[in-house]
Amino acid sequence: MRRNLHISQVLEYSFRDTLLQLGYDGVPAAKPDRLIFDQAVASLGVPQADILFVGDNLKDDYEGARAAGIDFCYYNPGRKPADGDSTPDYTIHALFELEAIISREEEQR
C-alpha cells in the first residue's frame, strides 16, 4: 500500500511539477494543448520515444500525448470503458502494473 501511494503521488504530480521546475508555470496552455507536452518533452532531454505519459483522462491526457507523439498509458482503476476513438498504447488498473510495461519495453531495446 505504501509503495502504491508513493507511486501514485509521483504520477499525480510529476508532470505538473516537472513543468513548474522547468519554469513553465506561465505556459499559456493547458492539457490537451500540444504546446505544454512539447515543452515538457524538450526540457526533459530524453528521446521522445523513451517517454511514456501515464494519465487517467482520455480527453486531456490521451489527446495531448497523442498530439505530441508520446506513447500513452491509460490509468483506469475504475475500469471505465474507453470511447471508440481512444486507443491507448497500454491500459493499467493499478499503478504497480507500470513496472511490467517498463521492463518489457527495456527488454525490447
Rank of each mutant, 00 (worst) to 15 (best):
P88Y: 03
I92K: 00
S14V: 02
S86E: 01
K31T: 03
D60V: 10
D50R: 07
F72R: 00
T91E: 06
D61T: 10
R16V: 11
L22Q: 11
G64L: 00
I70G: 08
F15I: 05
Y24R: 07
M1N: 12
D17H: 11
A30H: 15
T87I: 03
E107C: 11
T18P: 00
L44H: 10
Q108N: 14
G64K: 00
E106D: 08
D71M: 07
P47M: 02
A29N: 04
F96S: 12
I101M: 01
D60E: 06
I101T: 02
F53S: 00
D71I: 05
A49C: 07
E106T: 14
Q48L: 14
D85C: 05
D89W: 01
Y90W: 15
D60Y: 14
N57P: 00
R66H: 13
R79V: 06
K59A: 11
A30G: 11
G55Y: 01
P28R: 07
E12C: 06
D25S: 14
A94T: 15
G23V: 04
K59I: 12
I102K: 03
T18F: 12
K80R: 08
V10Y: 14
E99H: 08
F96V: 13
D56N: 14
V41I: 11
A68K: 00
R16Q: 10
L58N: 11
A100G: 12
L35V: 15
H93L: 03
A29P: 01
S43C: 05
